[in-house]
């Protein structure tokens, strides 16, 4: 590039020098500058490449080790039995998998309808004061530490009741879910072509039926995948469950009692001195990662396809 264009243009060429006819040593100077700039360019490029490579290193290390140590833990018993210290394998984590499913189910029942309705409103009334404030604050709420949400859920749902419960855990997760789902729903719904809405209204549809049967239905695949990503994120959360769901070493499916969860089990067994339980922690981590990362990768690919399809319709 700069071998064609005069290399002294960028940088700080003084006007005085440009008006003079360049002498021999000035040309040499100029080509030295050009060389220096090329070297800087190559060095910077190299640094940026290594920075990007450095970013991928921990990912490879973590996932690699999880695959190795986690897959060693997986067996049929791992998915069907309870933790059992008397066995060298440590038993299984069936209670934690079921407990996580129940917690995520409760959170989804509470959080998804609110989040999706909120997202629909944000997209269909984008410029009202309520929408502008809520859009901003849902990004802020997204950044509130999840442990604080756990403390909050404890104060409103565990302290008055007097005991830990799956309800409280589900509530804490639902608080995390609402802003996530609201924003992904808004993104997808705002891509629905406005002509569709206009056509429905022109045909005499009331607004609420237009919203539900035309707008929401067109955006539904994107909304579902967005919701999946959000649910996958909260399924991996531990901190909000510490003082709400609490964990349970036994089988429980009652929403009114303390309940086990996959992330809680990993946390409890990671610090255990028993090899069997450490193995359970690694196996649990692999299962959790496959659930969370797998779900969000699949959902993101699907969303991208959906976005490009809806976008093309404009």
């Amino acid at each position: 590039m700069s071998s064609i264009v005069s290399p002294t243009v960028l940088g700080a060429p003084s006007g005085r020098r440009e008006r003079r006819v360049p002498g021999g040593h000035e040309l040499a100077n100029a080509s030295r500058t050009a060389q220096r700039r090329q070297r800087t360019d190559r060095l910077a490029t190299l640094l940026i490449w290594s920075g990007a490579a450095l970013a991928l290193l921990p990912l490879a290390l973590i996932i690699g080790l999880l695959l190795v140590r986690g897959s060693a833990a997986l067996s049929v018993a791992f998915f069907t039995e309870l933790p059992d210290l008397s066995l060298p394998s440590g038993g299984g984590i069936a209670n934690a998998i079921a407990g996580s499913a129940l917690l995520v189910g409760i959170a989804s029942l509470m959080g998804l309808p609110i989040g999706i309705a909120a997202g629909l409103h944000l997209a269909t009334h984008p410029h009202t004061r309520l929408s502008r404030i809520s859009r901003y604050l849902s990004d802020v709420l997204n950044g509130v530490p999840s442990i604080v949400i756990g403390v909050f859920a404890w104060e409103v749902f565990v302290r008055p009741v007097g005991h830990f419960s799956a309800w409280a855990g589900g509530l804490a997760l639902a608080v995390l879910l609402v802003p996530l789902v609201a924003r992904t729903t808004e993104t997808v719904v705002s891509l629905v072509p406005v002509e569709l809405t206009e056509a429905a209204l022109a045909l005499g549809f009331p607004r609420w039926r237009t919203s539900l049967q035309v707008v929401l239905r067109t955006a539904l695949p994107g909304i579902v995948t967005g919701a999946l990503v959000a649910v996958a994120r909260i399924a991996g959360e531990t901190a909000p469950l510490l003082f709400t769901a609490f964990g349970n070493a036994f089988w429980s499916m009652s929403p009114d009692e303390p309940i086990a969860a996959l992330p809680l089990t990993i946390y409890a067994y990671a610090g255990s001195p028993y090899e069997g339980w450490q193995t359970l922690a690694w196996g649990g981590a692999l299962v959790l990662l496959l659930l969370v990362a797998g779900l969000s990768v699949v959902a993101r690919l699907a969303t991208r396809r959906q976005l490009s399809r809806v976008g093309a319709g404009r």
Partner: peptide, 24 residues
């Protein structure tokens, strides 16, 4: 590809980072 892989770091649950931290 690099962008998607770096994004994947955000999908790893915190407790899994902790487990890796303790053992590695």
């Amino acid at each position: 590809a690099v962008g998607a892989l770096v994004d994947l770091l955000a999908a790893i649950p915190s407790v899994v980072y902790g487990l890796w931290g303790i053992f590695v």
